[in-house]
Design a protein around this nucleic acid. Structure first.
Length: 424
RNA sequence: GGAGGUUUGGCAGAGUUGGUCGAUUGCACCGGUCUUGAAAACCGGCGUGCCGCAAGGUACCGGGGGUUCGAAUCCCUCAGCCUCCGCCA
């Protein structure tokens, strides 16, 4: 959530930044500001009334102790009006505050300066490319065919046992999955990230902290009995570690990572984009998260991008990096780099990672601050990235490293999976 | 799931016959005196949000609600933690 302070101090800058998302937030921002002004004036008045009634209460206390009951009673009568008045003002203040908050949570993050204006994925800016997308090879097979022929993944069985989008991985398919997880975790460990195994369900407060709630509850599986949500990404439990926390400056940066399954309802998805491993309700992912000093976050974003590059190069996959334009960026991000791997068999780019800086947007929701050199508590910056999500990587490995006999395992991965080929 | 206990500022830990308690004290931390330097000792400071140019005011003693002129202290409710019992991987 944007900080109230930023709206108060830099209203016009906020509006022009949000314009890069192609939304006109003028009405909402001005609504926030007017509700805020309303709240403040109610509070000022309320504080005066409370001050007066506190004074009277103290007088009554004094008189009671001295046994001057009648004088005390006389003062008591004067408090009734103050009480009614303060209740009224409190109500007005709370209401203005609630209305202000309701508007504020609807505003997406302001894109960073370097983020391009733009509406669609076509407006994203390619910042790096490694390897060239090969032309469609005539006999390159999509991973869903390979998965069946080599008996690595059983989609139908998943559909029977659970439903569409919940595949079974089996045999070498399962081992490949397990090896990839270890490969990603070991690389994160080497890069200094502390590994966590977090809970797979989160409460509503955590959902709010990272921005899934309100409004996006439809994307998460919800257990109404206990009012818990299945995590859509490890970002949620990992980042919420820092909810309601004040860090000391020397505790920054915090670098943590974790492997979890992720659960997404993906309501509204359809068509070829959801074929095979392209879009699942349950998938595995290793997530990296950093909490940094505000001055450091963009440097950190770059190091996280470099980390993911290293993973893809280890897997020998052709990829490109896009800096998302305002219109294509998620609600909570100030800047996002997407990694896409080329699949000749599907003749398209597959998004395999997303690395973002949220600046203070999540910190403000999480109430995560650090104590600065001047002794003041200030918002931290939070960042995260997939490093990496499994299914599309698996798809890309199968599709890019297929030959006529089967699938070749890249050298860097062999120690983790225990074999160097998958053949029929 | 049942019974009981408990929840106070970074930590420890007072305060529950309601009344100058936002809160004693110790530790930690910051500044100063002393010292060649450090330690010790001594002096001072030391929670957070909001309103206010400031002085200052106001709110917060797990969350929410209530009683009262007045609540950390009483009542209701929810949650966390601990102990015992039950059930169970």
């Amino acid at each position: 959530m944007l900080t109230l302070q930023s709206l108060r101090d830099h209203r016009d800058d906020v509006l022009s930044a949000l314009a890069k998302r192609h939304i006109d937030a003028t009405a909402m921002v001005d609504g926030v500001l007017s509700k805020d002004a309303e709240r403040r004036s109610a509070q000022t008045e309320l504080d005066h009334v409370l001050s007066e009634s506190n004074t009277l209460s103290r007088q009554i206390g004094g008189l009671m102790r001295e046994g001057k009951k009648e004088e005390a009673e006389a003062i008591k009568n004067r408090t009734a009006g103050l009480k009614a008045k303060s209740a009224e003002l409190k109500e007005a203040m709370d209401q203005a505050e609630a209305q202000m908050h309701a508007l504020l949570v609807q505003l997406p993050n302001t894109p960073a300066d370097a983020v391009a204006s733009g509406k669609t994925p076509e407006d994203n800016v390619e910042t790096y490319r490694n390897g060239e997308p090969s032309p469609a090879g005539g006999d390159a097979k999509p991973h869903w065919d390979l998965a069946k022929e080599l008996d690595l993944i059983d989609f139908d069985l998943g559909a029977k046992v659970t439903g569409g989008g919940f595949p079974f991985y089996k045999g070498k398919g399962a081992k490949l999955q397990r090896g990839l997880i270890r490969f990603f975790l070991d690389r994160a460990d080497d890069a200094g990230y502390t590994e966590y195994i977090p809970p797979l369900m989160i409460n509503a407060d955590s959902g709010f902290g990272t921005g899934q709630l309100p409004d996006k509850e439809g994307q998460m599986y919800h257990m109404p009995e206990d009012d818990l949500y299945m995590i859509p990404t490890a970002e949620v439990p990992l980042t919420n570690i820092f909810r309601d926390v004040v860090l000391s400056a020397d505790q920054l940066p915090q670098k943590i990572c974790g492997f979890t399954p992720c659960f997404r309802r993906e309501a509204g998805s359809y068509g070829k984009d959801v074929r095979g491993l392209n879009r699942l309700h349950q998938f595995d992912k290793v997530e990296i998260v950093q909490v940094t000093h505000p001055d450091e976050s963009y440097g950190t974003l770059d190091t996280m991008v470099e980390h993911v590059k290293g993973l893809l190069e280890g897997l020998e996959l052709p990829y490109r990096i896009l800096r998302l334009c305002g219109g294509d960026m998620g609600f909570t991000a100030a800047m996002t780099y997407d990694f896409e791997v080329w699949s000749a068999a599907q003749e398209r780019w597959l998004e395999v990672s997303s690395v973002s800086n949220f600046e203070t947007f999540q910190a403000n929701r999480l109430k995560c601050r650090f104590k600065d050199a001047d002794g003041k508590n200030k918002w931290v910056h939070t960042l995260n990235g997939s490093a990496l999500a499994l299914p599309r990587i698996l798809a890309a490995l199968m599709e890019n490293h297929q030959d006529h006999q089967g699938i070749r395992i890249p050298a860097a991965l062999v120690p983790f999976v225990g074999f160097d080929r998958i053949d029929a």
